[in-house]
Each structure stands twice: as C-alpha cells, then as structure tokens.
C-alpha cells in the first residue's frame, strides 16, 4: 500500500499540482493580456481604453468572461457538430500543453525532456488543425476562406521558423530547453543571431495570425474569418487559445533568444531579482512588441505575405544556418 502511494499516487498528485500552478497564472495572464492590449492600443491612439468596470477598468476581463459565459451557444444547422465543437477545444488545449517543457528556472520545469525544442515545434505546428477544423465544420464560405488562408500561411512560416530553431540548436549543442538557456550564460543568442531573431519574431506574428498577418480573420473582407459562426464559450475558447498562443510563443522567444530566466548582467542589482521574474519580464516585453505592431502596421496583401515567407525568409534563414555551421566549425566554437 505504501508502495502504491510513493510509487504512483504521490507523483501523480504532484504532477497535477505542478500543472495547476502553471495553468492558473497562465489563464489570469491571458485575461489581463486582453486588458493590456486594449489599454496599450488606447494609449497609442490617444484614447482612454477600458476604464469603467472596477478601478482603471481592471475588472473588464472578468466582465467580458462572464458576458461570454452567459450567452447562447449556437450550433449552425448545416455544420458538422462534432468537429465544430472539437475545433475550439483543440486550439485551446494545444496552446496549454506546450507549457509542459518551458523552463521557469534551473530545474523548474514539469517535463525536462531531451527533445524539448522539437516538442514545442511539433505542438505549435499542430495549432493549424483547430483553425482548419473550425473553417470546414462551419460549412460557411467566410470561415472556409479564412481556414484556407490560415493553413497556407502557417505551413509557409513554419519552414523558416524551423531553420531559425536549427541555428539556435547549432549554437547551443542540445535540443533540451534548459540546456539552451544555460548555453546563453554569457551571451544571449539574440545578439550573435540577430537576423534570425528578427525573422523568428516576424514568423511568430504570422504563426499566431496577428497583425500584419491577420488575413485569416481579416474583418474587412471575411467578417471575422474562421470563427464567424462561433458564439459564447466556443468563441471564448478560440479567443483564449489565440492569446495563450501569443504568450507561449513569446515565452519560446524568451527561452531561445533572450536567455530565459537569466538576468541580462551577472551583477548585483540584476541578480537580486529571481529568475521567474526575469522570464516574465522578457515575455511581457515581447508581448508589448506584439501589441505595438498591431497598433502600427496595416495588413499585408496575401501574395506579399507568401512572397515574404518563401522568397525572403526561407533563403535567408537557410543561408544563415549554413553560415552559422561554417563559422562554428571554422573557429572551433562548436559546443562540447
């Protein structure tokens, strides 16, 4: 009996507690990211933003959540019911499961697996299924067009993202995320791999369907793209999934390029701050740029989007991988 407790039950309970400890702050962060987005964009457009519900409008996300919860869930008559309901769940769950491998500090990670980078890449490449399923199951023309655009866009930008990740892995010498962060002890990869950092950031904008690459949901032509037919909680799941994905990809950027939990300099005022706070600050900085881009740039035309992905990013990132490998071998800088 004691064996059962120490061998199976206690580890299972511990893992569940760890998952809750990540998910609860994450969901609160998602709620307040929507608030932050509205406030930041309002500031950039000389408006006030949400300021009525609660002090400084701080309860606005809660009010929005409750509003969505009490609305009616509509299943369109011609839709494919099972796939229609499954699609938002897939989007939401995929945005959450990837957090299993994100390291919050030395040894502070749920699953410290050898192929952490590949796991993240695999999960983020599955994100497109939620969108395609939603577009197809709605049985309506605007969602379908949105889903088609999204599939083409996400597959295109994943290729260059893959090459960017390869160049980071070349410099770190490991596929383990903790190892990648530790390889940035002295120098964040954003500095030697600056062009790759820029390409990666632009690719994650495309990967999360954010402005200037939000063609899948372009409201001026496709109403709202793939989630036109969704209402109430199914809509809320898409919305939460999209924002959770933004936070996730910002965390990946922080881990791959900005040194994860490491302070920028190893001198006292910086080293007093705990690692989790550094990671959170880096994620927040990347998210701010996400919002900043949304407030600044107009939407790309579709053929320009494809041209940028295939004719600019792909050759540049492929060339940079060769260059990185060449430099590492020539100057004998290969890790280990």
């Amino acid at each position: 009996m004691a064996d059962l407790w120490t061998g199976y039950l206690w580890p299972a309970i511990f893992i569940v507690l760890q998952i809750v400890a990540i998910l609860v702050p994450l969901l609160i962060a998602v709620a307040y990211l929507t608030y932050a987005e509205r406030k930041v964009i309002a500031g950039m457009q000389l408006r006030r933003g949400p300021n009525v519900v609660g002090p400084f409008g701080l309860l606005q996300p809660l009010a929005d959540g409750i509003k969505l919860l009490f609305k009616e869930t509509i299943l369109p008559a011609g839709s494919n019911r099972i796939v229609f309901v499954l699609a938002p769940m897939v989007t939401f769950v995929l945005a959450l499961v990837a957090w299993a491998v994100i390291p919050f500090g030395p040894n502070q990670v749920i699953a410290d697996i050898n192929v952490g980078v590949l796991y993240l890449f695999a999960i983020s490449s599955l994100g497109v299924y939620g969108i395609i399923m939603a577009g197809w199951a709605s049985n309506s023309k605007y969602p379908f067009l949105g889903a088609c655009r999204s599939a083409a866009q996400m597959v295109s930008y994943e290729v260059s993202m893959g090459f960017v990740i390869v160049s980071v892995v070349l410099c770190a010498g490991t596929l383990n995320l903790t190892g990648i962060v530790e390889a940035q002890q002295n120098l964040w990869f954003a500095i030697p791999l600056l062009p790759m950092f820029v390409i990666f950031f632009i690719s994650i904008l495309a990967e999360t369907n954010r402005t200037p690459f939000d063609l899948p949901e372009g409201e001026s032509e496709l109403v709202a793209g793939y989630f036109v037919e969704y209402s109430s909680m199914t809509f809320a799941l898409f919305f939460l999934g999209e924002y959770a994905n933004m936070i996730l990809l910002s965390a990946i950027t922080a881990v791959l390029f900005l040194g994860g939990w490491m302070p920028p300099l190893w001198i006292p005022p910086f080293t007093w701050v705990p690692g989790e706070i550094w990671l959170a600050l880096k994620i927040a900085a990347v998210l701010f740029v996400f919002i900043w881009v949304r407030a600044t740039l107009p939407r790309y035309r579709y053929d320009q989007l494809m041209r940028l992905g295939w004719k600019v990013f792909l050759p540049v990132s492929l060339g940079w991988v060769v260059l990185t490998a060449g430099v590492l071998v020539t100057f004998d800088l290969l890790p280990q």
Partner: peptide, 9 residues
C-alpha cells in the same frame, strides 16, 4: 517528435 512535425505538421 519528427513524426508529429513532419506528418502531422
């Protein structure tokens, strides 16, 4: 992982 990335992704 490669199975997921290549075949599913």
């Amino acid at each position: 992982m490669i199975l997921v990335v290549v075949y599913l992704g």
